[in-house]
Amino acid sequence: MDRPIRVLVGKPGLDGHDRGAKVIARALRDAGMEVIYTGLRQTPEQIVEAAIQEDVDCIAMSILSGAHNHLFPRVMELLKEEKIDDILVIGGGVVPDDDIQPLKDAGIAEIFTPGTPTTTFINYIKENIIR
């Protein structure tokens, strides 16, 4: 079915650098997606609940503060509690290489580090959404 892909773009945690999140939001819109932008300082609980209500295909989160090891897995945990397995979850930000595999093991589908072109991001979402 020809329908817009819905993506939640949010910033979990306290970090206020939203340049990347905003650029991504605009790029996704320009690629024909519906972007639910939830803004700064979101708790994992807020992100997961918003994702449910908005019935999104993808959750895209950005963290630049280094709190990814706590916040990303927490989102996955909450999704699991809600028995949700049809939302693609991806992350972006300053994530050291050593941290990437453990995050993937926790269920984050992909981590995009700084310098990733928005087209890579867009294509990844298009190719990997689950429904």
Partner: peptide, 22 residues
């Protein structure tokens, strides 16, 4: 760190994962 910058103590739930990070 971010909790300090936003006026939260290290033991606030919202500070979880952010303490001492940046």
């Amino acid at each position: 760190d971010l909790p300090t910058q936003i006026g939260y103590d290290s033991d606030y739930p919202i500070s979880e994962g952010e303490v001492g990070k940046v």
